[in-house]
Nucleic acid binder design. Structure first.
Lengths: 141, 141
DNA sequence: GTATATGCAAAGCATTTGCATTAAA
DNA sequence: TTTAATGCAAATGCTTTGCATATAC
């Protein structure tokens, strides 16, 4: 079940594996999802103090272009980066009170499909679902 | 079926109805959906040449806060404003080739629901679905 | 050795804000 | 008359870019 790591896949695609890119990949691999570019930068700097924010942005953009990472703009402010691809569709819960963005257990959502005319006029490659509401912590007060 | 107009609803909520706000409301009421703030500004200026971009932003933000208009950030670049609320959930199709954002016939999508643990831990207020793919024009071209 | 990635600093957009002026109520 | 909205211009925040240097291959 465990395929090649992110860095292995990137090497196969002809990437030069630099210490900076390794640091960014490690920052994303942690248990924290939905990091901003700035948060990735901070984490990468813990490992490699001289990595620049520009390089973090460049690397994140390349990962997004390759489909390894999703850029998510559901929240106000900066984009967030979601490395949880490969595990099928990645839906989200946004708590409109505290602003936290949660991952949804994919088994908990029946991915919607298009029907009617729209189905014939559009070829769908991916579906993104965002549930807006209130998380347990905020509901509890 | 035809309820009060946008401006009437705003007046009911204590808005001062200025010529600028009227111009913004008219710009949004046109048949073009998903305008950027800049596009709203251009259209509003056709009617009221001295309206400023800052006022357009202020007005759009107020309309979003009131739930009259949805701010949509599915595309790269600036936010787009979708006045098609009140007609229930408003799902979208994004053509990843040409970048156009289309509205979806609400009848063509079964709005997804949460099940399992997530249902118990999160109170859902709204659901947003984005289909990514290729539109008919791009598929043909 | 050569092509590519990096860091830095500057530029680019999109959006917000402060404040004096204007206008709705 | 009072309170809120406006326009302007400056500030902010996020992201990208140009270019000289460093480094993976």
């Amino acid at each position: 079940m465990t395929g090649p790591t992110l860095l292995e896949r990137l090497r196969e695609r002809g990437w030069r594996v630099t210490s900076q890119r390794r640091a960014v990949a490690e920052a994303l691999a942690g248990e924290h999802v939905h990091l901003t570019a700035d948060e990735v930068h901070r984490r990468a700097r813990d490992v490699l103090p001289e990595v620049s924010l520009a390089t973090v942005y460049n690397t994140l953009n390349e990962l997004v272009a390759m489909g390894e990472v999703a850029e998510v703009r559901h929240t106000p402010g900066p984009s967030r980066y979601d490395p949880n691809l490969g595990a099928g569709p990645h839906h989200h819960l946004l708590c409109t009170t505290c602003g936290t963005l949660f991952d949804v257990d994919p088994a908990a959502v029946a991915t919607p499909t298009l029907s009617g005319d729209d189905r014939r006029q559009f070829r769908v490659d991916a579906v993104d679902v965002l549930f807006r509401g209130t998380c347990a912590a905020c509901a509890a007060g």
